[in-house]
Write a protein that binds this DNA or RNA. Structure first.
Lengths: 173, 173
DNA sequence: GTAAAACCTATAGTTAACTATAGGTCAAGA
DNA sequence: TCTTGACCTATAGTTAACTATAGGTTTTAC
């Protein structure tokens, strides 16, 4: 056993404040004590370390129980769901973080807030789709001619401001 | 000056084999000695280190001149162009590498080979577009209802085999 | 011929998004 | 009560795709 001094002041304080009644996981859930990190991990389909990581990035928040263990509000499940969805859309955690900035930290977002956020994402998503379609069409034309000239191929050069020194259709031979 | 012994055997051998006539960059280009790494970098719009990196991954190949400097065949410009395009399509260097495996290492690919490769990519691209569109539509329905239930939201659960323990529409309140 | 620019290799650092490990504490159930 | 599993923190490692730096050699341009 380790002495009390190895614990942080916060922990000691919390311990003193709490009455130490054991609760089952079911009780915890129904009494609103919050979800353990393992519960969230299992139900959201991510690893515990990933949740630690998300918390360190400020993407999710938790409180602590008497024993310094994290307790999550149910809406954090939603948060994780949103994170995972947004990643599928190709958004980075930073972008997601920015979107979350507009939402309440601990309470569930209102329908309106959620709609606003998802509308922004819908736009991003639509942009992504548009540019992929453009790329596909360019690729189609390249398949047609069999060429990919540095200078003239639109697949390569939609936004390319690289060297201009007269390569020409060198690959067309 | 550093003694001959600091050089590799290969370098010494090469040096002995070569007559040391200076050539200008223009001469090099026209005599077919090949492009320097700087030329390729400038004309392909990537950094010299990136080319080193690509070479170390086997994505491009080069020979060496008498002084141990890389000389690239013109078709490596095309390679780099292809790499950059494919990355825009969301392909990893590994995937690109695999695609290249079917192409001749040093010679220019034939039109047919190139077409075959780009057709494969077109398919990948189309798949990507399709799944983004599906995601967008799911997001639309979520915007409509304002919900993102862990259990029922199709945005979250298209392929989700995570925990099943009865969360239900907990966020719908 | 000489100085500057371009090369060379090798190594280390960077960002994103995690995953793994160590060493210790807390909680749940038999 | 006691064992086992879940937690805790902190640190290190991983992969992808590069970027940066150091210290030395070659080429080019004047």
């Amino acid at each position: 056993m380790v002495s009390e001094t190895t614990k942080t002041i916060t922990q000691i304080k919390k311990r003193k404040e709490s009455s130490n009644q054991p609760t089952t996981r079911l009780q915890r859930r129904s009494t609103g004590e919050g979800l353990s990190i393992g519960d969230v991990a299992k139900r959201a389909g991510v690893s515990v370390q990933t949740l630690h990581f998300y918390e360190s990035k400020g993407l999710i928040v938790s409180s602590r129980n008497a024993g310094n263990q994290r307790r999550f509000h149910g809406n954090m499940l939603r948060r994780v769901a949103i994170i995972k969805s947004a990643q599928k859309l190709g958004l980075s955690l930073n972008e997601i973080s920015e979107a979350f900035a507009s939402l309440p930290k601990t309470k569930s977002p209102t329908t309106k807030q959620w709609q606003q956020m998802s509308k922004g994402w819908r736009e991003k998503l639509q942009n992504k789709i548009d540019s992929l379609i453009a790329l596909r069409d360019q690729l189609d034309s390249c398949i047609g001619c069999g060429c990919l000239s540095i200078k003239s191929c639109s697949l390569r050069n939609p936004d390319d401001s690289a060297s201009n020194d007269g390569v020409g259709a060198v690959f067309l031979k």
